[in-house]
Each structure stands twice: as C-alpha cells, then as structure tokens.
Design a protein around this nucleic acid. Structure first.
Lengths: 339, 339
DNA sequence: CTGTTAGCGCATTCAT
DNA sequence: ATGAATGCGCTAACAG
C-alpha cells in the first residue's frame, strides 16, 4: 500500500532518495537519512507496485505457463502426475529465479498471445501445443519461448523444446512385446491431448513390427475419450475374444493403471488374460498389481530443463542445443506375460 | 505491443476515441470512425497493458494461490493428487471468472503479504496455513482472502475457510477399525504439511477410543518425514512384531498407498499381516491391491467452493456461511481385516 | 548528497 | 462526436 512518495513524505526527503535507499545506492545517501528511510520502509512494509514496474520496463518478471489443452479436459489435466511433476518443478525454479508464475490452461492461441502481451510476460513455457499452432505463437510472441513436448512442422523459427525419445519409447516397448510373443497389440493414445508425441510413439511401434518382419496397421490404434465410462466400455470391448489382442500398449501410466484396475475388477486377469504396458513410469506404475511394465521418463526433469533454458534465453545466452530430447528406458515389471 | 496511442495515431483520431471504441461506448463514436478504429485494433492485435491497469485501478485481476508449504517439500506438494485436484478446479474457475492465477508455493508469510501487495492482487487463496500465521496474513492483507483447510486460533477476524470434517474422518475410520477388532492402531500424519487437520483427525481417533471405553495416547501418533527412504524404514519398524500394531491409520491415500505397496513387496501382507486405512479417497486408493479403505472427501469441490466464495467476496456479496465444512464418509474397501 | 522532472499506457474528466 | 489534460508509482537523467 505504501508508495515511495508516501515514504518520502514521512521521512521528509525526496522520492529519489527513497528510491536510492531501496536500490542500495548507499553511496548517494547520507548514513542518517539511510537509517531513517530504511526504518520507515520497514515499518510501512513497502512493496514495489509491479504495475508501475511493468509500465516502466515493459516487462513484468512473469513467466506464463500454458498447458495447451481443451477446456473440457481441464480439471483432469493437472491431475495426471505427469503434469503435476512438471508443474511442481517449474514453480520451484521460477520462484528461485525471482520470477512469478502465471498458470493458464487454454487451447486458444490468440488468447495465449493476448495474455503474454497484456502481462508483458518475460517468457513463456508452452506444454503440448500442436505443431501448426507453435508457429503461430512463435511468430506472434516476441519474448523467449520454451516448448515442452511439442512437435514442429516448419523451420522458420528456432524452436526451443524439451522433448522425449517418444519414438524410441514406442519402439522399445513394442520390441519387448514382440520378444514376449505378442503380435496382436493395440496402441491406446490419450487423444487428443498429446497428438505429436503419440504419433511418434506409434511410429516407434510400427518400426519394431517392421524390423520383426511384420506390419502394424493404423487399425491398431485406438484413441481414448475423456469420459471415463466410455473408456471402460472400450476396455471391455478390446479385451473380448473377438478383438483378439494379447497386449494393450497405453500411452500413459494414468490410463494403463485405470484399465488394469478396471479389468482386474471385471475378472479379466493381467497379465494372464491380457498384457498391458504403460508410459511415464510414474508412481501409478508401482502402485498397481501387477506392477506396470512401462517406458520410463523423468518428467520433473522436463520442467527443470525448460526453466533452465528459458532463464538462459532471458540472460541472452547462446543455446547450443535448442531441442533437447530426454532419454527413455524400458522399465520391465510384471504386467506382460510371455506367450 | 500496440498501445492505444499508436492505434490512435494510425487511425488519425485521439486516444480517447480509441478508448471509447475499446469500451464499447459506441454512442460516443461515429460509425465511420468506429469501423476504422476497430479494424486497426483487430489487425494490431491490441491487448491492454495490465501494468497501466494496475496503476490506474489499484487492482490487477490476479488471484494469488498460495500453497503454504515448506520449500524442501515443494516438488512433491503438487504431486499429491489432492493438491492437483484442488488446483485444477481453481485454475478453471479463476479463468472462467475472467481473472488470472498466480501460483506460489511458500511458507513465508511476509513474502505472501509482499507478493499480494506488489501485484495488487484482487484476492488470495491460501492453502494449509498454520493458525497463528493466518491471523498475521489476515491483518496485513486487505483484499478478500479464502483459506482452504486452515484452522484458526483467534476470532479477531472473520475468516473464510473451506474445510473438512477432519475430526469426524478420524472418528469414523477409527470406529470402524475398533468394530473390526483393532485396538492397537498407529496414526501417521504427513507432518508438518497439514498440522491443523491432522490433529483434528487424531482427536477423532481418540474420541472413538474413548467412546469404546479405551484410551488412545499421543504415543499412537507418528509423523512421517519427507524423505521416502526414511519413511520406508518407519514402515518396516512399525510393522515389526515388537511394535504390535494391527492397523495403520494414514492421513493421506498417498502415503497409505506407498506403504501398502512397499510392505507387500517386503512380503508383509495387507490386510492379513497388518491393516491399513487412507484418507482422501483419491485415485490411488482404487489402484492399489487390496483397494484402500479410506475416508472420502471431494477435493476438487474444495477448490470450486473456495473460488466461488472468493468471487462472492469480490462482488461484495454477503457470505452467510464463512466457514464451510465439507462432509466426509467412510469408504470401506479391502485393506482392513477383521480380527 | 538531495531534489525536480519526464514519461511509461491507460481511463477519466473536462473542454471543444 | 472528438480531443487535451491529468495522474496512477516508479525510475533514470539531470539539476542543484
């Protein structure tokens, strides 16, 4: 509430002197005044008006964190431990760097652009933005931008992205399934939340089949709806005898765990009746019984690296590697049966 | 980037006219000018400078969401589905109401006060703030404040809080355990994240014992440390024969699931060797085997109600019930054995 | 060492 | 119907 002007009035000095004290320019202030002014600043609990700062410097120290997801899915998106881990890591590092975090869930690029301008954001983190939209945002926003798990179609801009070996993830898990004798698999992406990554992962699956002398068609891909009841219907359908699948390849531990638990409750045994694999290797995969065989990724590291890169960009440092691809590895547990 | 002034220059009109167009005061602008100005606003992608707004109106449309937790715990706090659910709900409703969400994890009340002033926040949501600190914050901040899961010591202020029947939660679960023959129980709070609620829950446990003609002493309370390895040591220790406990009463599904899974891996069977109960009834409780008997609460509703109350306060509406206590119920599943 | 001033972008009041 | 002027809080350049 207290402004510099008020403090200067109370101290009987000019606003500049107060500003000098605040900014530690002690050489420009006499010790006596310094003491007096500091005391008042303390007692008045002075806090700079960020609005004035924004007006002045054209920046705000706000980092916008945009989860690019459909509104209807909002309530759930933060509930996936994958999002939470990224978010938690980013919040901590943004704060540690002396910035402020504004969190926004939206799938409207115009809104994102407007937001970043209105708040004079110093930088943006964008999660799960479809390729075409990345280029729109990149060309409309003129502050540092770091994407997480995005895939780009053009090379007009230098995109900074923290990604993952998605393709290799799909490849490794499928290769493993093939080695266990599974040739009838179904890939279940969490469409449309993460389109780019899922198609990469599916490509990896196909690659493993090809290498094995087999073919995996697009028929082997079944996107999961947002509605839980609908998903459960699908789980039953695809585990029926007619379907003939021996393994379900999920694109997240979240849905894999959900399916595993649901199926067991329905008397369908995992992995005896059907094998299941996940993706992420988050806490869910260790909680369920049987524990999930899954593809490991370090999601909180994604958040950390994204902020680290953004801070580098803010300092104007050179980025030697604008596109980071974090490694995955196959975490074999107990949810796949050898045929 | 484009300012009103720039637009007015391009349109060859005054800034006031542009402002009139922006604010829909069409009666004060001729149709021709309106058209022309609107076109330029559109093409320039005008976005108001929130800094100027803050300076002008002394408010910012920012809602601060403060998770009051120790720094070292930061990375984990958002990973508990309980936090995520609240957070997801709040983000959505804050955005829907045309406000912006600034997320901050801190356990420094001075920092919180400074933050709220610096950003001229319109309102604050405070989660898990210890009682003494609530009164400090409430007296230092002069915008609407809604607490979540906080407990207050004084009555100097009108506190707005979205709470839970914590005591009854502890009571119900303990009564159930007693009815199943368990008289040697250990309560495991997630100290010190949630001090008020945990002591309420423990009081409920004691109450059930008293009602049953028994006494539960403070010995039956064992706070869990942040470090996972240390927790696992505790899990082993308290399930040893020397300890003699027949049931572990956790204060969150998060730790209950962790313990359950860990113990099963160590060859300690749940519920045959030891019974376990959780608290929250989140997704974890349905994922583990055996499924957790737990105390149900609707955490996303907590978030929704908090924002709803804050919006009422912002509109200056009367709040008939400043302290909401959401109901719990006992969700019986399979993690407790009848002795 | 200390004070004065201009200007950042905007809404508002008061002219014209 | 349109425009000019003011001030919100702050910093930096400049003047004393």
């Amino acid at each position: 509430m207290a402004t510099i002007k008020e403090i200067s009035r109370k101290a009987g000095v000019s606003a500049t002197t107060v500003a000098n004290v605040i900014h530690g320019r002690t050489s420009k202030v006499s010790p006596a005044t310094l003491q007096k002014v500091q005391a008042i600043i303390e007692s008045e609990k002075y806090a700079p008006n960020m609005g004035a700062m924004m007006l002045l410097g054209n920046n705000s120290r706000i980092i916008g964190v945009i989860m690019f997801t459909e509104p209807r899915h909002n309530e759930t998106v933060l509930e996936d431990p994958f999002s939470s881990a990224i978010l938690g890591a980013m919040e901590r590092d943004i704060r540690a760097a002396g910035y402020y975090m504004m969190l926004y869930v939206s799938s409207d690029e115009e809104e994102v652009v407007r937001l970043s301008k209105a708040w004079k954001m110093d930088g943006l983190i964008l999660v799960w933005v479809p390729g075409k939209i990345c280029s729109i945002i990149s060309s409309s926003v003129d502050v540092p931008l770091v994407y997480i798990d995005c895939f780009f179609n053009d090379d007009d801009h230098t995109y900074y992205n923290i990604g993952l070996e998605d393709r290799r993830g799909g490849y490794e898990v499928t290769k493993y399934l093939l080695s266990m004798g599974h040739t009838n698999i179904l890939f279940l992406p969490c469409n449309p939340i993460f389109p780019g990554g899922d198609s990469e992962r599916f490509s990896g699956c196909k690659e493993a089949f090809t290498e094995h002398g087999l073919v995996l068609t697009d028929e082997a891909k079944r996107p999961l709806p947002y509605d839980r009841a609908k998903r459960e219907k699908i789980y039953l359908e695809i585990t029926g005898k007619d379907a003939g699948y021996t393994a379900l390849v999920f694109s997240s531990d979240y849905y894999a765990s959900e399916a595993l638990t649901f199926l067991q409750e329905q008397g369908i045994n995992v992995p005896d009746d059907i094998s299941i694999t996940g993706f992420d290797d988050n806490i869910f995969s260790r909680l369920v019984t049987p524990r999930l065989t899954t593809v490991h990724q370090d999601s909180s590291r994604k958040g950390r690296l994204a902020i680290e890169m953004l801070m580098r960009l803010l300092r104007g440092e050179e980025i030697e590697q604008p596109r980071v691809t974090l490694p995955i590895y196959l975490q074999i547990r107990d949810s796949v049966r050898k045929l």
